[in-house]
Write a protein that binds this DNA or RNA. Structure first.
Lengths: 227, 227
DNA sequence: TGACTGAATTATGAATTCATAATTACACAA
DNA sequence: TTGTGTAATTATGAATTCATAATTCAGTCA
């Protein structure tokens, strides 16, 4: 038991980074909008100092951009950003897949299988919200299985940027079915503890997801141009 | 040409992040030492506000750790950190190698060859400083060749953490020769524009470097325990 | 002498203040 | 009406101030 943990009271700025990050990732703070410090201060009931510290950290993560003397704005999720971010995440997940095969206990794998079953169930019920949550749980568990704090931190930063894209895209029915297939294969290799195969699968799974997102965004842009 | 760039005057906290990061990476601010805000403020001639903002950012990059109500300290480079960081960098460099083969112009490749020749020359002269600089230039050029800002940013963050380790290790003569060999092969594949091969080579090059560092650190620890 | 207590000092977390850059509002001219 | 220039307002960057937690150090007592 870690005794220091129980006393730990996160500082204001840490708390703010956490909450602001969630607001951005959950699309409450919309991309492109200015983030007036005053409003946020009032909303959170803190002074500008810790809030600005938090904004600096979020800027270094790429969730907001700081314009000199003109405050912060939530960064837009651009096509270019998606095309750049997904391949990097794909490499990290490949590594995670390899290591997870070596590190995860049978019990942990059983837990992931459980989430996988829940995900398939949500897919059949077309319950996007539950599906998304289960999917995220699975990926996070496989990342955690690498037992690598650095990998985990950077994956979280990158995933946060990309996760926002789900509010912009309409993944096709076909791609959804395909993703389920890919996850089935991943579970197979995980049970077989085939590290190389799972790594490759996770990498290509992410690259396919990237292609689907890009396709969907391009189509959305075309539609917008047409109207 | 980007017109906004020319006007850009970095804010104090950006400047401070940059300078502090350099001080840490260059081992001027030694791992483990406390970093009293007052001293740094006096040294840089700024008030505590921008300095603390900079520390928050550096903490999110893992170069310093913030202890509640007890200030910041430069993080130690641990064996575990190296073993976690190198594989992640290796994955990023694999991706960079693949993409660089596709993206770099002949002129850019010629420029890298030039740095490579300089590196070999420095190796033969046993000029560690020049060798290190040329080596870093080559890796940075190959990362830049991926034309991926996300990849570049995360690579820079990870490389900063690991770069500090060079002050702790004494790489063996054998490993040094081996590293040169690996770089020769990399150049070969780069000229041939064999993306997959260069990616694999860069990945294994990094993993070998990791093994060498770990070996050296373990030996250093053993020596310390003996005396 | 050495360990403990508690006041004094110091350093940090956060709020406030100040200076300045950016934005807005508005008057006036074309 | 539209555009331009200037004053007023607002928001930000940075310094300063304030409150509190941590540390230091002196003094006491065993």
């Amino acid at each position: 038991m870690n005794l220091t943990e129980s006393i730990k009271r996160p500082s204001l700025h840490e708390e703010l980074v956490e909450r602001l990050r969630n607001l951005i990732v959950e699309d409450v703070l919309k991309p492109g909008i200015k983030v007036p410090e005053k409003e946020l201060c009032d909303a959170f009931g803190v002074s500008r100092t810790p809030l600005r510290e938090a904004l600096k950290v979020l800027a270094s993560e790429g969730l907001v951009e700081l314009l000199a003397n003109r405050g912060a704005r939530v960064t837009r999720v651009t096509l270019e950003e998606l095309e750049n971010t997904f391949p990097v995440i794909a490499m990290l997940e490949q590594l995670a897949g390899e290591r997870s095969c070596q590190n995860l206990s049978d019990a942990e794998i059983a837990g992931i299988q459980e989430r996988h079953d829940a995900m398939v169930k949500a897919y059949k019920a077309r319950d996007r919200k539950s599906y998304f949550q289960a999917n995220q749980d699975i990926h996070n568990a496989l990342i955690a299985g690498a037992r690598n704090q650095i990998l985990e931190t950077h994956h979280r930063m990158l995933a946060a940027r990309v996760r926002r894209a789900r509010f912009m895209v309409n993944v096709s029915e076909d791609r959804w079915a395909e993703a389920i297939q890919e996850h089935e294969q991943m579970m197979e290799k995980l049970h077989a503890r085939d590290a190389t195969a799972l790594g490759e699968l996770m990498k290509s799974h992410l690259m396919n997801k990237c292609a689907a997102h890009v396709k969907s965004m391009v189509e959305a842009a075309d539609d917008a141009a047409q109207s």
